[in-house]
Amino acid sequence: MPYLRLILLTSLAMIAFAGNSLLCRVALLQTDIDAASFTTIRLVSGAVTLWLIVRMREGERTGGGNWLSALALFVYAAGFSFAYISLTAATGALLLFGAVQATMISCGFWKGERLSALQLVGFLLALAGLVGLLLPGLSAPPLAGSLLMLGAGVAWGVYSLRGKGGGDPTRVTAGNFLRAAPIAAGLSLLMLSRYSVDMAGFWYGVASGALASGIGYAIWYTALPALRATSAATIQLSVPVIAALGGIVFLGESLSLRLVLASVAILGGIALVILARSREQGT
């Protein structure tokens, strides 16, 4: 793949991933849509978009998702939406990313992988950043929203781990979105008493599902084979930063000193783990 095209695709994918935080936050903050409806619209529009992408592609069609992965995807999407009722875009993206990476690193450790001294320092630094962000104080994020986003991050970490080696990733993701959509619809039915959807909120949900999720994942999976494992992991560190900048520019959010220090600790710690692993594996 030409280098400039790779840079463009990778940049678009990271902007799309960060865009999910911004779209969800602005929808729940500035429109009348409820979190359950936003989740359903996001997953349905993502499923339709990914299904169309898979149908238009040629080549091998191995894999197609499964119900356990779809359930993890639903838990992520629902927790993500309900968390953003109270969290800023920057805080939500940082908590999500930190929880995802902590889940995946912890799983590897549980399966017998041993962390080097540098990796251990990085992991503990990232955990300290998460704890520091959540400690009680005037600038602490709301606890309920924080716990929901941490749960969403754990679910996405589980989803990512289950997806390894599952076949063509775009097709697998499409299958999981198609399975998760009716689960989300069931949640909307259970919360029918709180149903509220306006046109602006509806289109934010469609944009989150079709553009930031569906097309975003398709672009990322197109670029991923051309990236080294270390590069792919490190590039994703930019997502919380992009979300934070977007929150400042488009939503008028501000960055507290606590959030800045926590971001440095969490992202820096994860970077240490990634770089130390790449040094050991030569990737």
Rank of each mutant, 00 (worst) to 15 (best):
T39A: 13
A210Y: 11
A276K: 00
V241Q: 05
S256G: 14
R42M: 01
S21W: 04
W67N: 01
A36E: 09
Y3F: 10
V172K: 06
W203I: 03
R279E: 14
L148P: 05
G79I: 07
I242C: 07
A232H: 04
P182G: 12
E280F: 00
S21C: 07
I266M: 15
Y195D: 04
L133M: 09
A13I: 06
L12E: 08
G63P: 02
G153A: 12
L29W: 08
P136D: 10
G209T: 12
A27L: 07
L120R: 09
W220T: 02
L12M: 13
L134V: 12
L133P: 01
L187A: 15
I53N: 03
A72H: 09
I15H: 02
S208N: 14
I7S: 10
T49Q: 07
T283C: 08
A155C: 06
I7T: 12
C24R: 00
W51Q: 10
I215N: 04
Q101K: 02
P2N: 15
G209H: 10
G137S: 14
A89P: 01
A140F: 07
P169E: 12
G167Q: 11
F74N: 02
S231H: 13
A184V: 02
W203A: 04
Y221W: 08
W203Y: 15
L71F: 15
L71P: 00
N176Y: 00
A207R: 04
W203P: 03
L135W: 07
G201D: 09
A155W: 01
M149N: 05
S37C: 04
L148A: 13
Q281D: 15
Y3A: 14
T234N: 11
G252N: 11
L6D: 12
T103H: 09
L187W: 13
I53D: 03
T88H: 06
G214N: 13
A102Y: 03
E113W: 01
L135S: 04
W67S: 05
I248M: 14
M14R: 05
I215D: 02
L251I: 01
I266K: 07
